[in-house]
Design a protein around this nucleic acid. Structure first.
Lengths: 218, 218
DNA sequence: ACAAATATTTAGATTTGTCTAAATTTAATT
DNA sequence: AATTAAATTTAGACAAATCTAAATATTTGT
């Protein structure tokens, strides 16, 4: 597979929201930052290679095989993102462009060993799930922290209350977007939570927890 | 710079033995696994871009700028090799192909942080020196272990005595090609050496040391 | 020094992925 | 249902990097 083909497959995968959806030529063109006519040409090629199902003027869907390829690219992309954040001190919002290049490196051993080196992570720095080697993965969902069950881990992806006071609190407690949060325990009495963040345990009130969004795995 | 241009520059650098030498079209063609006519075309392009000095039928040399570019590619290649061996458990003879791809990833921060993550290594798993960010590097030389000064580190790159008995000894003491060896101390009396290998100190006789080649940095 | 051998370059064609402009199909509006 | 608007495809062209075949330059051997 050429670099360009891989880009198309990945974009079709994302636009099709995982797998099903039919994707339009124009939508692909916009994401690829190219012209619809170029997309038509490329789709024809991908169709001949059995990567997509295609009927003229009717949009495309990924074939079984196309989905497999897409998942392997997504897997590589997300593993590299974890690497950049965990090992090279990148922040979660700096990793995309570089991972976009790294995802095209061809070596099965490389990815297997990277996966191992990172401790077989299940989510990337944006809270999205990392497909396993054979293409399985859990869907991720966005939940308020106070609704996350004990024993689950998630990535902090947003706030409900964006008041100055709340943001200040987060800053003081070193809670930032992109941080991984593990729910250690929940207090029945007042709904307060014990969470582990950057390897330290802290206690937060239910009110705080009900204003923080995590992305967790089902 | 395109991927192909980078490959040409790197090959011209290596064929020119570092920097000076004039490199022939045919030699480049062979290394690039392409035809001399294609090389002619590409050299013309590289010349227009100021990367090489070129006179028809007279071969090419890298320009100042070309050397700079070459060193940056070599730096990336060798840092990735260290990463693969040190962090992902690749063996020294498996890394080349993958590093060949990784060297083309474009991100200054990536390389800076990788360098830091690896502890600013000076030699790669083959014992070759890693250029610094601004293109400086020491030449590497091959020395018998018993001639390596105390306090120096090198990579085991070969044996002088390849007898069964000697190889067995090496195997028993877990000394293998590609291992990094640090000379801790030298005993005046009998010329025996204390070396550190894979973080353990061992004692070896002068006779052993005089049959093992290391690649060290000047 | 000259012919033969070798190395290098030019000319013209090919492939991949792209483009513009024009044609065609589908969707939307009245 | 007819017409306009939007989306999609086709046709023909282009740049990058390559190729083959032919032309030209350089080197070598005697």
């Amino acid at each position: 597979m050429t670099l360009s083909e891989e880009d198309y497959i990945k974009i079709i995968y994302h636009l099709g929201k995982g797998e099903q959806g039919t994707v339009s030529t124009n939508a692909i063109a916009e994401k690829m930052e190219t012209k619809p006519s170029s997309v038509s040409d490329m789709i024809k090629k991908l169709s001949e290679k059995g990567l997509v199902n295609y009927k003229k003027y009717q949009g495309v869907t990924l074939s079984e095989y196309g989905i497999k390829v897409a998942l392997s690219i997504v897997r590589k992309h997300r593993l590299w993102e974890v690497f950049l954040v965990e090992k090279l001190e990148f922040s979660w919002d700096e990793v995309h462009e570089v991972a976009e290049q790294l995802e095209h490196i061809k070596s099965e051993k490389l990815i297997d060993m990277l996966d191992k080196h990172l401790g077989f992570p299940q989510i990337d720095p944006h809270g999205d799930p990392i497909p396993s080697k054979n293409g399985e993965f859990k869907k991720s969902i966005k939940r308020l922290l106070n609704e996350v069950p004990v024993g689950k881990e998630g990535i902090c992806v947003g706030v409900k209350d964006s008041s100055r006071a709340f943001l200040k609190f987060l800053d003081k407690n070193k809670i930032a977007l992109g941080d991984s949060i593990f729910v250690v325990d929940k207090e029945e009495f007042d709904g307060s939570l014990q969470i582990k963040i950057r390897d330290v345990d802290i206690q937060i009130s239910n009110q705080i927890a009900s204003n923080l969004y995590l992305r967790i795995i089902e």
